[in-house]
């Protein structure tokens, strides 16, 4: 439906040129409310300057849309993105030259080395164990993985308390 000519629309609210320019611009990006549309039409019916702005704005929009499209992005962009994908997907960051089995082996060997060092240090430096001391597997494992301490560690029966 074509808009009602402004001079016949006595009920349309008035609009200043500043408001009209904003409405003209907004109308290019989507429909106006019926009230605003009526006010704009009424204003355009009496204002040659705003009619010229409306025509220019529409023509500039058309000219912008007529610009030749830029070329698509080069394929190398997608290649670079795909190369980034595994790390972003939560995979662990690994040394590329070391196979998985080798990495696990290295970790286990390192852990055993630390455990052996701690055990040796304890045997050499600590005083002779009391006869009540538990020297079984459980105690060795606790020793190797840091279970001994002033607080929270396994307590020897009949210890310092």
């Amino acid at each position: 439906m074509s808009p009602i000519p402004a001079f016949r629309d006595a009920a349309a609210p008035s609009m200043t040129c500043d408001d009209a320019v904003v409405a003209i611009s907004a109308a290019l990006s989507g429909p106006l409310t019926s009230t605003r549309r009526a006010a704009l039409d009424a204003h355009l019916g009496t204002c040659a300057a705003c009619v010229a702005f409306a025509e220019d704005a529409a023509a500039m929009r058309a000219a912008l849309q007529a610009l030749p499209p830029p070329p698509p992005p080069p394929d190398a962009v997608l290649d670079a993105l795909e190369a980034r994908l595994p790390r972003a997907a939560g995979a662990p960051v690994v040394h590329p030259s070391l196979p998985v089995a080798g990495r696990w082996g290295l970790a286990i060997a390192g852990g055993l080395g630390v455990a052996a060092g701690l055990l040796l240090g304890l045997l050499v430096l600590r005083p002779p164990a009391s006869p009540m001391e538990d020297t079984g597997d459980a105690a060795l494992l606790a020793l190797a993985f840091g279970g001994i301490g002033a607080e929270g560690g396994p307590r020897r029966p009949g210890g310092d308390e």
Partner: peptide, 19 residues
């Protein structure tokens, strides 16, 4: 980590982004 999903998203939207 779906590489195909990346490719589809890229082909669907990269022209807009680039433009």
């Amino acid at each position: 980590g779906d590489k195909q999903a990346l490719a589809v998203l890229y082909h669907r939207h990269s022209t807009f982004v680039h433009r």
